[in-house]
């Protein structure tokens, strides 16, 4: 089974790291194949950021996204540029604090940014919450695999914080249910 996941937002949210973490979970801990790529411009902060990860049971020949079936969107510009034309059978995880648009496909609305601030006091963990929701909603990688990948990808000393954010993201996905 091949999944093509597209992450978008603005620079500084950890959009690229999100794709790396999911790819690592699949490749190292779910024993699948994964390729992670990105499109980026000159901005280190701000600007539109897009990153993708392909997960497959078979070796991945073509490394670029062809038919994305999962979207994780964390900015309105990212939605317009990379998410608005999502096919109907796709699944989208939206940060409802930032993204106003809604797609034609099924979607999960996650208040990741406000939750990161209120529950964790750290807006930087919003992307980890979104990863939790992604895994909760789609099961594209295993829970144990994503926990290991998060643990080894975040700065030392922040592992527990990030694992709690990950768990919260899974809960939020269950609460949000699939909309509409």
């Amino acid at each position: 089974m091949r999944h093509e996941i597209r992450f978008s937002g603005f620079g500084g949210q950890g959009i690229i790291l999100s794709a790396v973490i999911v790819g690592r979970a699949a490749a190292l801990y779910d024993r699948k194949y994964a390729v992670q790529t990105q499109v980026y411009g000159p901005e280190a902060r701000g600007g539109a950021s897009m990153s993708a990860v392909i997960i497959d049971d078979e070796p991945i020949l073509y490394p670029k996204v062809r038919h994305p079936d999962i979207f994780v969107i964390m900015s309105q510009e990212g939605f317009l540029r990379y998410g608005a034309d999502a096919p109907e059978n796709a699944t989208m995880i939206l940060d409802t604090d930032i993204v106003q648009g809604r797609p034609a496909c099924r979607w999960y609305g996650i208040p990741a940014t406000s939750e990161a601030k209120s529950a964790f006091g750290r807006v930087i963990v919003a992307n980890i919450i979104m990863i939790g929701s992604l895994v909760g909603a789609t099961g594209v990688v295993g829970t144990e695999a994503i926990e290991k990948a998060v643990r080894e990808s975040v700065p030392r000393g922040t592992e527990d914080l990030n694992l709690r954010a990950l768990k919260r993201g899974m809960e939020l996905a269950a609460e949000a249910g699939r909309s509409p």
Partner: peptide, 9 residues
């Protein structure tokens, strides 16, 4: 840039 920047198993 593609091969240099992509991550892969």
């Amino acid at each position: 840039e593609i091969i240099g920047h992509m991550r892969e198993k």
